[in-house]
Simulated assay, not measured.
Amino acid sequence: MSPVIEQAVQARLVASVPRTETVAATLRYDRTDPFAVRMAFPPLATLEGTEVTWEFSRELLASGIHEPVGLGDVRVRPFGYGRTVLEFHAPEGTAMVHLRTSDLRRFLERSEDLVPAGHEHLHLNLDHDLTELLRDAC
């Protein structure tokens, strides 16, 4: 089984004007970085005109389906029936996207097939990470 899961999702960008725009985004989970989820937005959906990727914890995403969570740059909360809102806060402003909760659940289930919640520590390569951290220290 591949150590990486990618899933395309339709993200509804919520603008400050009364309109929404739907863009394709990609959720990514890699068991070599078992605590993290990445969400990439294509160039057309960003102010910079380049792909933008946000990284946040899998636990934040899983909890945010059920209740509002997050105090920092990424916040997640349920929204009505069948939707979840992700808010991305940056110095340039805030991006808010609506996703189908069923898509998020399916992605989380697939990620837990690779690495069950609570077992992430078993997939860390601490020796390698420590070597990389100390590589230039000598």
Rank of each mutant, 00 (worst) to 15 (best):
R19M: 15
H119L: 10
G49R: 12
S2T: 08
L124S: 00
V69P: 03
R83I: 08
D127H: 08
L130G: 10
T32Y: 10
S63C: 02
F56L: 01
V97Q: 01
V14T: 07
Q7R: 13
H66N: 12
R106P: 00
G70S: 07
G72Y: 07
A90P: 00
A40W: 03
E132C: 12
E67T: 11
T22R: 14
G82H: 11
Q7C: 03
D127N: 08
E59G: 03
E21L: 15
E55W: 09
T32K: 08
F56C: 04
R31K: 15
V97P: 01
A8W: 04
T53E: 13
Q10A: 10
V74N: 02
E92Y: 05
R77M: 10
E59L: 01
A45Q: 04
L27D: 08
G93W: 11
M96P: 00
E48R: 12
R38T: 13
L124G: 03
D33W: 11
P68E: 12
H121V: 10
H98G: 00
V17R: 15
E51A: 05
V37I: 11
G80L: 06
A95Q: 10
T46L: 07
T46N: 05
L13Y: 02
F107D: 04
G80N: 06
E55N: 10
H66E: 15
G80Y: 05
E132P: 04
R28D: 09
R83N: 08
D103K: 02
L122A: 14
T94K: 10
E55Q: 13
